[in-house]
Amino acid sequence: MSQPAAIDAVMRTLADPTRRAVFERVVGAAEITVGELTRGSGVTQGAISQHLKSLKQAGLVAERPEGRNVYYRAEPKGLEPLVDWMSHYGVFWRERFDNLRALLKEMDP
């Protein structure tokens, strides 16, 4: 997946609040099944499975089948396009904060 396509996929996938909540639960567990994700979520098992499919296609989760269960875990490399994109803007903000710091020192030596 090219970088622009990768960032688009990650942002589109995480834009959905329910999917983002599923992802956060996966991140908080070493591994977790669809059944475990469904319990207490207020979302059907079918919907959880669809959200996991989207997360997997975006490279944000990986799966490991074992018997009748499939275990999901977060895939840290899946967030790299987002981190790379944000780091570009981090430079912008660091420069602005440095300028603000210098201005404040001038105003109140």
Rank of each mutant, 00 (worst) to 15 (best):
M1D: 07
Q3N: 07
Q3V: 11
P4E: 05
A6I: 08
A6V: 07
A6K: 07
I7T: 06
D8S: 14
A9G: 13
A9T: 05
M11P: 11
T13A: 14
T13L: 10
L14K: 04
T18D: 15
R19P: 09
A21M: 11
F23Y: 15
V26Y: 08
G28K: 13
G28S: 09
G28V: 03
A29D: 04
A29G: 02
A30K: 10
E31P: 00
I32Q: 02
T33P: 01
V34S: 09
G35L: 06
G35V: 02
E36V: 04
L37S: 02
L37D: 01
L37H: 01
T38V: 03
T38P: 02
R39Y: 11
G40K: 11
G42D: 09
G42N: 04
V43C: 03
V43F: 10
V43K: 04
Q45K: 11
A47T: 01
A47N: 06
I48H: 00
H51T: 00
L52K: 01
L52N: 01
L52V: 01
K53R: 14
K53A: 07
S54C: 14
L55R: 03
L55M: 07
L55F: 04
K56Q: 10
K56A: 13
A58R: 03
A58W: 03
A58S: 09
G59R: 02
L60G: 05
V61Q: 07
A62P: 08
E63F: 10
E63M: 11
R64G: 14
P65G: 13
E66V: 15
G67R: 06
R68A: 15
N69W: 13
N69V: 08
V70G: 10
Y71I: 01
Y71N: 03
Y72C: 04
Y72E: 04
Y72M: 07
R73A: 06
R73K: 11
A74G: 05
A74M: 06
A74F: 07
P76F: 00
G78C: 08
L79C: 12
L79E: 12
L79Q: 13
E80P: 12
E80N: 13
P81N: 00
P81Y: 00
L82W: 04
V83M: 11
V83H: 11
W85Y: 10
M86I: 14
S87E: 15
S87F: 08
H88D: 10
H88A: 10
Y89L: 09
Y89S: 08
Y89N: 08
G90M: 10
G90H: 05
V91K: 12
F92V: 15
F92Q: 11
F92D: 13
F92R: 12
F92T: 11
R94P: 13
E95W: 10
E95I: 14
R96T: 12
R96V: 13
R96N: 14
F97C: 12
D98P: 09
L100W: 08
R101F: 03
R101L: 04
L103K: 02
L104N: 00
L104D: 00
L104V: 05
E106V: 07
E106S: 02
M107D: 00
M107I: 12
M107H: 02
